[in-house]
């Protein structure tokens, strides 16, 4: 069979398609990040850093669904928030240790993810998104009305017990390393999911769903699987957050929380490995430093978001990846 053109040069040759090279770059960046975060408490307030880490994981979990699964959920606060409540409740009332409350929170989010996911993926596009929003509002209502959530007060002064029942990690500086390990492990798991045989199928479904079906893939199973994974990991973030602030509150399940995670992901760069982490860092930093402006924070956030979307649709990390011609 004859080839009519030469192998395309230029653009193709410049972008390395060797996944090995990209993998090594990513691992190096993860190592640098880990080192930076390990020494960061010497320079920054640990609670602020822990907040950044929890939201970075929340955004990374959300990005797994949006950026790699191609599914937009506007109800991720339900998973984050319900895990936060369960984590706070089990730590305070049942007196379980931190690792157990994080696991119980994640399991709650997972079960909720199965319910919301199996209903939502029956529809596509905006309809799917609306189903997630509607179901998340129901979770909010439960959090507001149920007897164990503390209503408007939430669950306050949640104790940080000894890790595994033996290691005292209650002080912020010590607890920070517990959070760092949980978040890094979860973010690396997300990285692995994206770069697995499963992740490859997800990519195919996102690129051309009808073709994936015609090759015999049961795409609904893959969509549900990635939905549940995303919900569970968002739960890990929420459960950890409850222990960081020693508080679970209605803010965690409110729809604005769902919006915030969309903002973080888009600002950082959806479908990129590091985008959600950068986006979360940026948004949390803004909220912290502009806290004195009160209600104006949301306006500043909104303006930054609009400018961000107008100037660089691919997000901060997306645009850097474009410059250096490497996936990040």
């Amino acid at each position: 069979m004859e080839l009519r053109e030469d192998v395309p040069a230029g653009s193709t040759a410049a972008i390395p398609h060797d996944d090995q090279g990209a993998g090594r770059l990513h691992m190096a960046l993860f190592a640098v990040l880990l080192v930076l975060f390990a020494i960061a408490p010497m320079f920054f307030y640990p609670v602020f850093l822990m907040k950044v880490l929890c939201f970075a994981l929340f955004a990374a979990a959300f990005n797994l669904l949006l950026g790699y699964g191609g599914l937009l959920s506007f109800g991720h606060a339900a998973f984050f928030g319900s895990a936060s409540y369960i984590s706070a409740y089990t730590a305070k009332v049942w007196g379980v240790t931190p690792e157990v409350s994080v696991i119980l929170g994640a399991i709650t989010a997972m079960i909720l993810g199965v319910i919301v996911g199996s209903l939502a993926i029956r529809r596509t596009g905006i309809y799917m998104t609306m189903i997630t929003l509607a179901l998340a509002q129901m979770v909010y209502f439960v959090a507001l009305q149920a007897p164990f959530t503390g209503g408007e007060d939430g669950i306050q002064s949640v104790p940080r017990r000894a890790l595994f029942g033996v290691l005292a990690i209650s002080p912020d500086r010590t607890f920070y390393y517990f959070v760092l390990i949980v978040v890094f492990a979860a973010v690396l798991l997300i990285y692995r999911i994206v770069h697995s045989p499963f992740g490859q199928v997800l990519k195919a479904i996102r690129e051309n769903e009808a073709r994936a079906i015609s090759l015999g893939y049961r795409v609904q199973r893959y969509k549900l699987a990635v939905f549940v994974m995303s919900a569970t990991l968002a739960g890990v973030a929420g459960a950890t957050k409850a222990l960081v602030f020693q508080l679970a509150s209605l803010t965690d399940v409110y729809w604005t929380m769902s919006g915030e995670v969309v903002l973080m992901t888009l600002l950082g760069g959806m479908g990129t490995v590091f985008g959600p982490l950068v986006g979360a860092g940026l948004v949390v930093t803004l909220q912290n430093y502009f806290a004195s402006f009160g209600a104006w924070v949301t306006i500043i956030q909104g303006v930054i978001f609009v400018i961000g979307v107008l100037l660089f649709r691919e997000g901060i990390v997306g645009i850097i990846a474009k410059w250096i011609r490497r996936p990040l």
Binding site: R192, I193, S196, P197, F198, V201, L215, Y217, R221, A225
Partner: peptide, 22 residues
């Protein structure tokens, strides 16, 4: 092409393995 080959191989739900196995 690998996406199609992968389907017949039957490990496409494996999310914990590296895609190097492909």
């Amino acid at each position: 092409v690998r996406i199609a080959l992968q389907r017949r191989r039957g490990e496409s739900m494996d999310f914990w393995r590296s895609d190097r196995v492909l």
